[in-house]
Design a protein around this nucleic acid. Structure first.
Length: 172
DNA sequence: CGCATTTGACCAGCGC
DNA sequence: GCGCTGGTCAAATGCG
């Protein structure tokens, strides 16, 4: 069963030749540099911290290092969970694990809405106390997919946007 | 007219 | 129990 928890494609509105995995096109409105700011919640399969730390540099780059998405191979690694993500779990367990999976990424962009390859429906906007910027709430538009995401500007540096994904897509 | 977005209302959880 | 805060709902609104 296919599933993914990360953006499907580069966070760019334009991809060369229409291929979302192609090298990045230059776009002044949105830089392509971004990094994992925080892993908010480990999934159950990776409760062993050491194994989790191994996966981050392999698949996403280290947390400290900005990851410039310029190579197809990097993006493909990024868009899918690690191969052993589904290891030794039945469908019910996998569903439970996916429902708990949550992570955030921080991206330098001037855009308010970021195209990550999935179709989202906005269902809420909230002023949060800790930030002068509103937080926007989205649900995946695909029927039966319960993935949500929140988007807000970084209060420390408003040129960055923090996107928090909640759940795992059950579709391509 | 249909669908997505907006936005105030409502709800749940938490700390006091 | 009460108030605060964040998350969700849903009616109103806007737009193609």
């Amino acid at each position: 069963m296919f599933s993914s928890f990360a953006p499907k494609s580069f966070p760019l509105s334009q991809h060369q030749n229409g291929n979302p995995y192609s090298p990045l096109a230059t776009n002044d409105d949105q830089t392509c540099e971004f990094d994992f700011e925080d892993i908010l919640d480990n999934n159950q399969l990776l409760t062993d911290q050491s194994s989790y730390q191994e996966l981050i540099p392999t698949h996403f780059g280290t947390k400290e290092q900005n990851l410039v998405m310029q190579e197809t191979t990097t993006s493909v690694s990024f868009m899918h969970p690690p191969n052993n993500f589904h290891m030794q779990v039945d469908d019910r367990e996998q569903e439970r694990v996916h429902a708990k999976f949550k992570f955030a990424l921080r991206m330098k962009t001037k855009l308010e809405v970021i195209d990550d390859g999935y179709k989202w429906r906005k269902y809420g906007k909230k002023k949060v106390k800790s930030s002068p910027y509103p937080r926007n709430y989205f649900k995946c538009s695909t029927v039966g997919c319960n993935v949500k995401k929140r988007i807000e500007r970084d209060i420390k540096d408003s040129s960055y946007v923090i996107t928090t994904y909640d759940g795992v897509h059950n579709h391509i």
